[in-house]
């Protein structure tokens, strides 16, 4: 189905004035401003649905327990960061933030390096089984984490890494590979071949070509992979919940949930922790919104 079916009924009348009643005349005049108005109304309503819950949590994070229960919504008496200080010090969010930073940055680094190298090998060389290899990597996206985590748990227990942040770093480094390969193979494939041949003639090795010529050209895809993996690792709760059995290794999501169990009614404190945990991603998102939106869809669009 395409244009052909629409073409026949050409209505020459569509450019003349078909109806002359006052109502239609008025409608023609106000149609544009009205539709703009409706558009803004819908957008503002949707934005409210997104923003109001977040704003209420931000407001709640400035309230003491008594203040919160007397006025759960509404502005706080004053914008004092006492909940943030308490969360940072007493609830030991300091340690959790550090752990999250370690796990995410190392996880992103290793998975990106491994995925880039493997993608380059798969995309730029002809050999038997390369499409199978690509499929083996990308197929990882369909495997439920719940399935592989049990043997991983056993491996970590046997190696004594269970409970430490290093178990999480290892798992992130590997679980980030399928998405990286999905995005990077497509991108490396699209780069022109003569680039490489010219460099080859100049005596550059394969690795030099990869690192100095090809990789810099894939910067947008690289940014997509880093954002995509960075956001999920920073936000991940499941793997941390299982692997981090020791409290001093808790990442932010795990620490906040543990914390919620012991301070059920201290809403202000919990909200402050939540805001602290969102902040790094939020700042990145506000500064680089275009890259984030493009990045978070890159993986899925290419597939």
């Amino acid at each position: 189905m395409s244009m052909q079916q629409i073409s026949p009924p050409i209505q020459t009348t569509s450019f003349t004035e078909p109806r002359q009643s006052a109502f239609w005349k008025l409608w023609r005049q106000i149609r544009k401003p009205v539709s703009t108005l409706v558009w803004y109304a819908v957008m503002i309503a949707v934005s409210m649905v997104v923003l109001v819950p977040i704003i209420l949590v931000v407001l709640g994070s400035f309230k003491s327990v008594t203040e919160f229960f007397s006025t759960p919504y509404g502005l706080p008496e004053k914008f004092d960061f006492f909940n943030y200080r308490r969360a940072w010090e007493t609830a030991n969010l300091q340690r959790a933030t550090l752990n999250s930073l370690i796990a995410t940055s190392l996880g992103v680094f290793f998975s990106t390096v491994l995925a880039c190298l493997a993608s380059y090998g798969i995309a730029r060389f002809d050999f038997r089984g390369r499409s199978w290899l690509r499929l083996a990597f990308i197929g990882g996206l369909v495997v439920p984490v719940q399935l592989i985590i049990i043997p991983i748990f056993v491996i970590m227990r046997q190696t004594g890494l269970l409970g430490t942040i290093w178990s999480l770093v290892l798992v992130y480094s590997v679980l980030g590979i399928p998405l990286g390969v999905l995005v990077m193979v497509g991108f490396f494939n699209a780069l022109p071949r003569d680039l490489e041949e010219a460099a080859r003639i100049d005596g550059a090795s394969h690795f030099q070509i990869f690192a100095r010529i090809m990789l810099p050209l894939t910067r947008p895809a690289l940014a997509a992979v880093i954002i995509l993996n960075g956001v999920w690792m920073w936000n991940d709760f499941f793997l941390g919940l299982i692997l981090l059995t020791r409290e001093d290794a808790y990442t932010l999501p795990v620490a906040i949930m543990a914390f919620r169990g012991s301070y059920m009614t201290e809403w202000g404190l919990i909200f402050a922790s939540v805001i602290i945990s969102i902040m790094p991603v939020l700042i990145g998102y506000v500064l680089l919104s275009r890259q984030f939106i493009a990045g978070l869809t890159a993986g899925s669009v290419k597939g």
């Binding site: 977040i54 956001v231 920073w234 936000n235 906040i256 909200f271 939020l282």
Partner: peptide, 10 residues
């Protein structure tokens, strides 16, 4: 871009 923990608690 928000974590499930943040969304859940909100």
């Amino acid at each position: 871009i928000m974590s499930a923990v943040a969304t859940g608690i909100i």
